[in-house]
Design a protein around this nucleic acid. Sequence first.
DNA 1: ATTTGACAGTTCAATTTTAGAACTGTAAAG
DNA 2: CTTTACAGTTCTAAAATTGAACTGTCAAAT
Lengths: 170, 170
Amino acid sequence: MKWKELEEEPCSMARTIGVIGDRWTLLILRECFLRTRRFEGFQSALGITRHLLAERLKKLVRLGILRRIPYQEAPKRHEYILTQKGLDLYPIMMALVHWGDTHMVDERGRPLLHQHRKCGKDFDPVMVCSECGEPLLAKEVHTHPGPGAQSPLTIEAPDKPKAKARRSAA
Amino acid sequence: MKWKELEEEPCSMARTIGVIGDRWTLLILRECFLRTRRFEGFQSALGITRHLLAERLKKLVRLGILRRIPYQEAPKRHEYILTQKGLDLYPIMMALVHWGDTHMVDERGRPLLHQHRKCGKDFDPVMVCSECGEPLLAKEVHTHPGPGAQSPLTIEAPDKPKAKARRSAA
DNA sequence: ATTTGACAGTTCAATTTTAGAACTGTAAAG
DNA sequence: CTTTACAGTTCTAAAATTGAACTGTCAAAT
């Protein structure tokens, strides 16, 4: 599987991974949410090579996640800003941060806190069901094929052509 | 920046990316949530090379995201199952799926639907504020340094040592 | 008038990762 | 005794990433 194919798989997660599933893209997007907009800004904040940065920005623009907007003529210069499609990545970013906050902090505690302007409090992001509002637990979710399914991932792993129960577990 | 350093950055997102931020790791984790547990299962479901699969599984076990549990003696065989730390990645997975469902589906619609056993309905995951329960919008969140901060990412980009306003925008 | 610096890339050799395919080893089944 | 299932390991070729230098435009300083 080469990674262009990812975007064509009948799996929304695979497609998303094909778009943003690499280290630098994710870090670039982090910077975008932190209001970085310019080439040099990304480069110095991340230490990414200019080569890769240019390549990744181009890809994000091509995919409609960033928009490239001129901010000066003369030597033409552009800023990269998130489109709505890009802004919609926010829950992914927050979910990544929250997992890190939960499992990867050292003694000193969290590097960054998030305050919700609406209620004024520092918060954690919680993922809930759109229908009943309850927090989502993996165990309580049943996955089933939708209209765009075509074969893989019908859930409950249908891919054991010759499962034969060789022997009971040790 | 080489990717071992990522895990030591004072940024929960960077640390998380250092752990799960690559294509194959993410795809392997997808399979875990779809109940795949064995080496051959992962390999045939994903088409990943055996070499990389072995390496990635080892890493996920080392990081405490998967547990390697014997299911048979004789030719020793193990299953890889999610620990609590691994299960906690669920919101990340759902956020990835949801973005793909929103922005990467073709005419046929979603490949997979998710049903919440609690309420019985097919749902979308929604990220809300732990304090007030309102859905989170990027614009409404203010980031500020926490106890574990040490320099970068104080938000509102403090990294322009010589910003001088060369000229107004075009 | 010339040099320096900021900014946004591009180019290219060297290194690191990943892909692909074959090979190892145990044990059950035919 | 040979084949098959399973879980890796080993090795070479191909692809991606790093590091460092180079290009080009314009403003400011000398």
